[in-house]
Write a protein that binds this DNA or RNA. Structure first.
Lengths: 357, 357
DNA sequence: GATTATTTTGAAAGCGCTTGCAGAACCTAC
DNA sequence: GTAGGTTCTGCAAGCGCTTTCAAAATAATC
């Protein structure tokens, strides 16, 4: 009834306008390859996946057919048949931070190299958002999820790992089907504080991140450890928290200044807060480093170009991303994951100076 | 032979160690829903997709079954059956730039809202990399590709659009199955230059981007237009190019200074280059804005927190990302794409000051 | 050369969902 | 009531690949 009769066209108004676009090039299937090579589809599949030995002659014929037809296996069909996809979800908190951007780039690269793809979503530092993002990924049936500095509680993560391989960064946690890339920030923070101490500073303010963030706690721990090692007392008055943003750093420093605290140096738990702090100092007419030395953490690309260039803790984000991706792949392929990241270093630039005794 | 007989286990050594993990929770299928609701799978599918009218009673029963079983359709199976996936690829040049990060976040949000996912890859400003990334996406059978400031030539893009819906940003191009979100940078650049002129500056240096980038050309065009409107001659000596990075801006400014050029203001084609330029000025002992006013373009989040806070052209990247995503969805769903982005504004901060006559 | 152990292969049954087709159920109108 | 129209709904055939299972081909053994 709905044959091609042109004069019945008006009846077709309920039909959706979408027509099946059968692009001629992209539609090479495994079956076509099989026919072309004179073997069965199963054989082609086996050659493709190395799932079984196949006579050399056939292998050659199939390979030839594949390249002749320019065949690429359809990953969707493959995922369906295998029951698992070659996609891994990556949840990042705020993609607009250059720090995470770099990590994401590294993760993406490593994943693609191994034949996976990165399905990306963001969590905005909010538990609810993160949970929603994770659900989205799960409903998309990803093969695993990488959480770059998750906000979620340990138990929740462990529970999650029961259904999907999980890789975490920025926290320590052990469990089945789960791997935490160990990037303890304590040593880096220690390094920064020690440097300031070495330069003769004694009253060193600290601008930290949110206390309920494992990573932020580590940065604080490094600061404390450095002071403790020299038997210097911790001065709560000199410590305040920001939220890892420029605005947070600005406010934190403003607070410190308004309270009339005296200090000759400040260690900010990340570069963005250091920027904000520097602006606050500037607004009060204080010069960096003449009046106050500033040290940050992360070494964002911009940090060597601000005025004055920022002394800061450098870690290879690339390595971190790489490690996370590798661990994920290992988890998916049921191998014992290993990951190593090299030690942090201190990039010494112009925002610090020795305190003359 | 390979039944469950335990004592034959040693024969199974050729079997891969991977076992089919049948997580009990995630495996609800449409068929189970159908059975639970006492209807056929087709009916469930139709209800899910609204592809046909279904008796109310059944609809209710099915909906109940769905929520009782907590069913989520398997997107992989769906993609396979429909022949197209709900994933759109996003190619971004350098994710580690905060500018693109923001755009990516916006794109992601809009895509997810519409039920799609963002498959992300990066191009690193290199044609070859970009081409490879695109191929990766195509082999993954994405439903469409968004190219955020592509490096590729028009013809290549048009060719590409024949097989996959394409959305571009940062350039103008028209063609079937392709949509370019129009974000002409000329007006923004004009705005910035006009402002400097209004402040009395006459010798305004220009640090541009790569000439073979449409977007960079627009920024240059805006600068020229502003000068031309006041019948001021273009001074090639005051113009030099960077590569949109802090380092590039630094070098460009250094070059200008070494050539002994005189200017009271500089307009950098993006914020990152402005940062670099400011550092170069600082290194020469020149103060911003006392000696030289600086204007940037992009309004990165950091720009309001550097010292001094940067006067710069602001555009809603959010809107841009949104527009790109919306256009993509329209393209995929075969609707005429429309996209509107609001006009740029100038964020006036402390890096500029009026030139006293 | 017959028999048995091995290795290769193909047929076929899915993976979970969509969709064309045609029969079933339900309405109108005569 | 019954013919003629509509509106639901189920059947069954895919989508392109993987993976049993068992038959076919080859190699090994006596």
């Amino acid at each position: 009834m709905f044959r091609q009769d042109g004069f019945h066209a008006e009846m077709a108004k309920t039909e959706p306008p979408r027509r099946r676009t059968r692009s001629p090039g992209a539609a090479v299937t495994l079956e076509m390859v099989a026919r072309e090579a004179g073997v069965s589809p199963s054989t082609v599949s086996r050659i493709l996946n190395g799932t079984a030995r196949v006579r050399d002659a056939k292998t050659v014929a199939v390979r030839a057919a594949i390249s002749r037809l320019k065949f690429t296996p359809n990953p969707v069909a493959r995922s369906l048949a295998r029951g698992k996809s070659a996609e891994v979800g990556v949840v990042i908190q705020s993609i607009d931070s250059p720090f995470y951007g770099e990590a994401l780039a590294a993760i993406e690269k490593a994943l693609i190299r191994a034949g996976y793809s990165a399905l990306f979503v963001s969590g905005h530092w909010r538990e609810s958002d993160e949970r929603k993002s994770i659900e989205h990924l799960i409903s998309r049936r990803v093969g695993g999820i990488i959480l770059v500095t998750s906000c979620l509680a340990d138990e929740e993560l462990l529970r999650l790992a029961r259904t999907t391989p999980l890789v975490l960064t920025g926290r320590r946690l052990a469990g089945p089907n789960l791997y935490a890339v160990d990037v303890d920030s304590t040593p880096g923070a220690r390094l920064a504080t020690d440097y300031l101490l070495d330069q003769g500073h004694r009253r060193i303010a600290f601008i930290g991140g949110s206390r309920d963030h494992p990573d932020a706690r580590q940065r604080l721990a490094g600061y404390r450890a450095a002071l403790a090692a020299r038997r210097l007392p911790l001065q709560p008055r000199l410590m305040t928290d920001g939220d890892y943003s420029e605005a947070g750093g600005f406010q934190a420093m403003t607070r410190l200044l308004e309270q009339g605290q005296k200090f000759t140096a400040v260690f900010a738990a990340n570069d963005q807060m250091a920027y904000g702090a520097m602006l606050a100092l500037h607004r009060r007419g204080l010069k960096v480093p003449q009046d106050v030395s500033v040290v940050g953490f992360d070494d964002l690309p911009t940090s060597s170009y601000i005025v004055p260039p920022l002394t800061t803790v450098h870690r290879s984000i690339n390595e971190l991303g790489d490690a996370a991706a590798e661990a994920m792949i290992d988890l998916i392929e049921q191998l014992p994951p290993v990951a190593k990241v090299s030690a942090p270093t201190l990039a010494i630039r112009d925002s610090t100076r020795p305190l003359r005794a």
